[in-house]
Simulated scan of single mutants.
Amino acid sequence: MFTKVTSVFAALTVLLFSTGVFFTADARPFYKGKRIIFLGNYPAGGANSTEGRIFAAHIAKHIPGKPRIIFRDMGGAGGLVATNYLAEAARPNGMTVGFFTWNPVAQVLKDPGLRVDYPDLQFVAAAAPPVICYIRKDAAPGGINSPQDFFKKARGFKFGGLRTTSTHDLKGRLSLDLLIGPENYKTVTGYRGFTPIFAAIHQNEVQYHTTSIPGYRRVVEPTMEKPGLVKVLYQYETPTVDGRYLRSPNLPNLPTWLEVYKMKNGKNAMPSGMKWKTLKFLNTLNSQLFRMVFLPPKAPKAALKALRTAFSAVTKDKEFLAAYKKAIKAKPAVIVGKKGEAIINATLRNVDPKMVSFLRQYVKSGGK
């Protein structure tokens, strides 16, 4: 009898070793009993903060261990202050998670304000909301009430920017240069975030701006568009690998910038040259990766795995989707894990040297 029991025990031991099933302290979820800080890289009240807080409010239940999550905003230098903090000052223990509107151009141009390479951060996930462009209606005599009014009459207005090397400023300037000419507007850059620019629009310090759909739904639509202060003109298009330029499904009735370009120049017209090539490159990148979730470079792999699992799960969470739709009137587009890593590495390590040279000169002429 003793021999039989011993044999059964031995067989169970072999089974447990072979399957890796052990009930030890190692099975405790990494984030059990912990608190995570989600760190935004723009001031509170802007699009980044709006979207980040929706994710933060719903993601915890999908993280093994169900930690407590706090969202904090750290604006400055066009989003670079918080980016540097995550890489240099945040403890790499998995308890600080960046929720950033990233600025890949800063790395391409070796902006001294960015002291980390994005591929060195650990990529968790990314969201890609569409971006709209709008202008005060009183920025031209007789008012701007349509895209046609804009490209025919808008002259001498000011575009509110963040930093000469920011993707926001560069896309704004490139699209305006191609549509109405660089001589017909001025760029006023250096605002600490979108919240100050929203205030500047209200105060008529600047008249033109661009923002992603969270900022549009939370601020622009209720406080500017509906009261009749601004006209929303167009959205940046999403370029596809087969040569198409698409509207976002979240803004099906708003024309793209390219469609407005064709309104002005003819239905078969296409922009060309390095400005167009650069704008298309930035639109291609931002249509996939815009709002980025990062961990510090040396954060534990267990943290990375847990967070990637959670961001995959939250996109199927009915409560999260309902909250996102209520606040933003859109569906989130999220990329998780290896796919995003591949895009980051492929994009930032293979930029056309001619484009880099062009951008260096273009940045020097910015912030008039």
Rank of each mutant, 00 (worst) to 15 (best):
A27E: 08
G156Q: 04
L179G: 07
K153C: 01
P227I: 08
L80M: 07
K158D: 12
A333W: 08
R218Q: 15
G161M: 04
L114M: 05
S248T: 15
I328G: 02
M263L: 11
G78C: 05
G143K: 00
P249M: 15
S7P: 05
A200P: 09
G161A: 08
R28G: 05
R72P: 09
I70D: 15
V220Y: 01
K298W: 01
I328N: 04
T96R: 02
P104W: 04
A139E: 05
P222N: 08
P222Q: 10
K186D: 12
K368D: 15
F290I: 15
G76D: 02
F159P: 13
V334P: 08
K226H: 13
E319K: 05
G156T: 03
S146P: 00
I36W: 14
F55E: 05
L179T: 01
R91N: 11
M263P: 11
T189L: 14
P104K: 09
Q107K: 01
K32S: 14
V260F: 07
A333R: 11
Q235A: 06
K275C: 09
R218S: 15
V351Y: 04
P297K: 01
F55W: 10
D317C: 10
G94S: 02
F99T: 05
Q288Y: 09
K368M: 13
S357C: 12
T315A: 12
G366V: 10
D111L: 02
T165N: 14
M292G: 01
K262Q: 11
I197W: 03
N350S: 11
I343L: 03
G172M: 08
Q235N: 08
N93V: 01
L174I: 00
M274V: 13
I70S: 13
R91M: 14
P227N: 07
T96M: 03
P300M: 14
T164P: 14
T210R: 11
F290H: 15
G340V: 01
K152Y: 03
K262Y: 07
K318R: 07
N286I: 05
T96C: 02
A269D: 08
G266W: 10
G78R: 05
G46I: 12
Y324S: 06
I63M: 02
R349V: 03
V351W: 03
M224Q: 11
V351A: 11
A27C: 10
Y31I: 08
D138R: 01
R360F: 06
A44P: 13
G98V: 00
N184V: 03
T3P: 05
T24Y: 02
A327Y: 07
G181D: 09
K298T: 04
I132M: 07
Y42G: 14
P112I: 01
V293D: 03
V81G: 03
F2N: 15
I201W: 14
L246A: 07
F198Q: 10
T347Y: 02
R192W: 13
A313Q: 05
R247W: 07
P297Q: 06
T19D: 02
N250E: 10
L258E: 12
H202A: 13
V14E: 06
